[in-house]
């Protein structure tokens, strides 16, 4: 009896319950997306439908009209790339080093990496504004410099993703084995640790890209143009196009998720020489 109950409590939900949960959650995600798609075909408030909002995107004068938006998309992609670069070049080696050589600093590093999640973007901007006045003097006012701020905002997410993977592999033993076989530490990091940290690194990269593509507050308050600020601007003159681009951004994130999921779950390739 008691054993049965225990089993029941620990058991997976039935197939019906699972489908129900999946259905409800799926609906929560899908309904707004469907509504957005529906909206892009509306012809003003008249109640009938048109494809002109979509076809208009590819017309000649729209290229001029939305040039700002395309630039903003480019900016956001560059920002995503630089942010991922910061995570991989700064955070990853730091975490590996702390994990292997200075395990006592682990708590401190974790604390530092978690802080950004507790700081509202607006507070961050207030602090960053004077910093950026210096950054502009040194590196110019290009949008990509925003990636320094984004590098901080993605820390909590990237840290979690990488740390989970670090804890799951015997980093110390593997690195020691590699160094007794003649590998220097860069080689250890590159040929031994990175391939085994692929899941964590990819997850960290993806989540960083997702955060950067969806970021509005910092860009807006520091007067930079990225995808989100441009979308807001466009939506004021042409709400349909803004929704179309929002849909495109969603689709891009979805495709990224699929690709990264694929890469992460693929078994190590067997190379035949």
């Amino acid at each position: 009896m008691t054993a049965n109950q225990a089993v029941r409590i620990g058991a997976e939900p039935s197939a019906l319950t699972r489908r129900l949960i999946l259905g409800i959650i799926g609906a929560i995600f899908l309904i707004p997306v469907i509504a957005m798609i529906e909206f892009t075909f509306r012809n003003g408030l008249a109640g009938d439908y048109t494809t002109s909002h979509w076809t208009g995107l590819f017309s000649e004068d729209s290229a001029r009209t939305y040039r700002g938006l395309y630039e903003a998309i480019e900016n956001s992609l560059v920002l995503a790339a630089v942010t991922v670069g910061i995570v991989l070049v700064l955070l990853l080696p730091t975490m590996v080093l702390v994990h292997m050589q200075f395990p006592r600093l682990k708590r401190t590093l974790e604390f530092i990496c978690i802080i950004p999640i507790t700081v509202p973007a607006i507070v961050l901007v207030v602090g960053l504004a004077p910093v950026y006045s210096v950054v502009v003097q040194v590196l110019g006012g290009s949008t990509w410099t925003l990636a320094f701020a984004y590098g901080i905002t993605v820390l909590p997410y990237a840290y979690r993703a990488i740390q989970g993977n670090l804890d799951a592999i015997p980093v110390k033993t593997l690195s020691e084995a590699a160094s007794t076989l003649g590998a220097g530490w860069l080689r250890v990091l590159w040929t031994i640790l990175l391939p085994n940290l692929r899941r964590g690194v990819l997850a960290a990269s993806f989540i960083s890209i997702a955060v950067v593509l969806g970021e509005f507050t910092i860009a807006s308050l520091l007067n930079r143009r990225n995808l989100q600020t441009a979308l807001l601007q466009v939506s004021q003159s042409d709400p349909w196009v803004a929704v179309i681009f929002a849909l495109a951004a969603l689709a891009l994130a979805f495709i990224l998720l699929l690709i990264i999921g694929r890469l992460g779950s693929a078994t190590p390739s067997r190379r035949k020489s």
Partner: peptide
């Protein structure tokens, strides 16, 4: 992404 790394051999 990791272009800054240089390979070192023993």
């Amino acid at each position: 992404m990791t272009a800054t790394f240089t390979m070192t051999g023993p």
